[in-house]
Computed example of a mutant assay.
Amino acid sequence: MVDGGPAADLVDRVAARRSFSRVTPDAPSHEELLPLVAAAGRVADHSALHPWRIIELRGDARMRLGQAFVTDAKASGSDAEKLAAKPLRSSLLLAIVSVRSKSEKVPGWEQDAVASGVAHILSLLLHDAGWGVMWRTGHHTRSKAVHRMHGLAKNERLLGWLYVGGIPADSKEGHRKALDPERFLTTLE
């Protein structure tokens, strides 16, 4: 029951989550990330395969990612500059990687879903800790140049990046209408 107390507080905090396309250069340290990653790893995980990992990208790693975007797109001139700058929108990117294991019980899509669940829970935890977060995806996640840059193995899939930083004081982002749960929750009788 969610009438009050800790459960209601958790519901309110989850409902307050917003995406922030602009963030400040502040970012959580590696040490600050560890307990959040450990908590996010508690996501439902059929057969406890732990089919995921997270790669921190800071500093020059973000520039190498930008160059991989340029290589992937075979861009030049101002297009190349724009692509190369995309990973610089945040001082911390967390690459979300699905690590598929051979399993007769757990198909690949379900392993991807676990990795996605970890990413979403991590974004909730980061938001609750006061950080601005945006999950960015796109065709670059399937790029050979981007895969090489991340050092991905053949059984790994890049699901996207959490861009993480401080929330700007003047931010007006993330004001959404409340969701109508009746539209999405049905009952079979």
Rank of each mutant, 00 (worst) to 15 (best):
A178P: 03
A68S: 12
G117T: 06
I96S: 04
V118G: 00
E81W: 01
V114Y: 01
Y163T: 00
A27Q: 12
P87H: 05
A40P: 07
R64Q: 12
R142A: 14
H150C: 13
S91Y: 00
L126P: 00
A61G: 06
I55H: 12
V97M: 10
W135K: 02
V164L: 02
M134C: 11
L83A: 03
L65I: 09
F20Q: 01
G174N: 08
G130D: 02
K74P: 02
A178S: 11
V11M: 04
L93K: 00
T187C: 01
L126W: 03
V97Y: 05
L34H: 09
E110C: 07
D79M: 10
L36Q: 05
W131H: 03
H139Q: 15
R58S: 09
K82W: 06
S29D: 07
G138W: 06
A75P: 10
G41Y: 07
Y163Q: 05
H120S: 05
R176Y: 15
A39T: 15
A85V: 04
H139T: 15
T186G: 11
A44M: 11
R22G: 04
E182R: 10
M134L: 14
L65Y: 04
A7T: 01
P181A: 11
D12C: 01
H50Y: 10
R62D: 10
R157V: 13
R89A: 11
